[in-house]
Design a protein around this nucleic acid. Structure first.
Lengths: 133, 133
DNA sequence: ACACTTTTGACAATGGTTCTCATGCTGAGT
DNA sequence: ACTCAGCATGAGAACCATTGTCAAAAGTGT
């Protein structure tokens, strides 16, 4: 273990083996993965319920991105904490993180124009990457 | 890829009462609605399975838009055929269709820049509308 | 009206996700 | 190092949206 980061104790969030395992699994593989995939990837060493719980915590904390595939299943991906969007290849799943200040501004403007506050948004771009053509 | 079959002689798609009822329900109410909501709105006069089937058909035919709410449930909305995005109130579900030529251009540019072709995208804006504040 | 095909709907089945709760660990204090 | 109080875990049940099943009902062309 040898962990030298004594912090966030009062909040009672413990860095357990299971949580580290889930985080490591996301770290190790690129792209989006479902809770079940991660559970299998860990060989069942971490209970499915725990995987779900951990993933939800990580997503709430902003450490991972959560989105839904076409079947409505939740998929997670480790990514930078900054706000960004994804450019995903339909064929191979290769993903590029992109930023668009202009889009952020546009969404805020549109929302304000219609009297909406507390604005958030989701934006995903799909295409076929060079290697898949 | 089997959707355009003009010769509806043998494989006839019938405009039944149930299908018309579901379409009418979507027509009558603005915003997004789940299959279950429509089923209830129709007072159960149309079976839930039929509502699901009809909604799926309409979505496949492009007559309605289907998206997923934050819980991953499928929600449907009758809307114009032109490309646009939605500004949705988190609280009451009130929806405004918005267009953003600039966004379209931006997504295409970003995709091209990374070598992606055949570009499409999804964009949803969430906020709290004036009446819900 | 008849024969034939599509559609319907009650119910079962499916599958992802969450909940329950007894037991296991962790971190902190002694 | 030993003990304690709580958070964390995991096996399975519970949930719930969605889909599949299939016999009965409703349309359609003749």
């Amino acid at each position: 273990m040898t962990s030298t980061e004594p912090q966030a104790q009062q909040s009672g969030v413990r860095p357990t083996k299971q949580r580290l395992a889930v985080a490591a699994a996301l770290e190790a593989t690129a792209g989006f993965h479902s809770a079940q995939e991660i559970h299998e990837q860990l060989g069942g060493s971490v209970g499915l319920a725990t995987v779900y719980r951990t993933l939800t915590m990580l997503a709430d904390a902003g450490d991972v991105d959560m989105m839904r595939n076409e079947d409505g299943e939740a998929i997670y991906r480790r990514c930078s904490g900054t706000h960004h969007h994804h450019l995903v290849c339909r064929s191979c799943g290769h993903t590029v993180e992109v930023e668009g200040p202009a889009v952020e501004r546009w969404t805020n403007a549109i929302a304000a124009e219609h009297g909406y506050a507390d604005v958030s948004h989701t934006l995903e771009i799909f295409g076929t990457c060079r290697d898949c053509r």
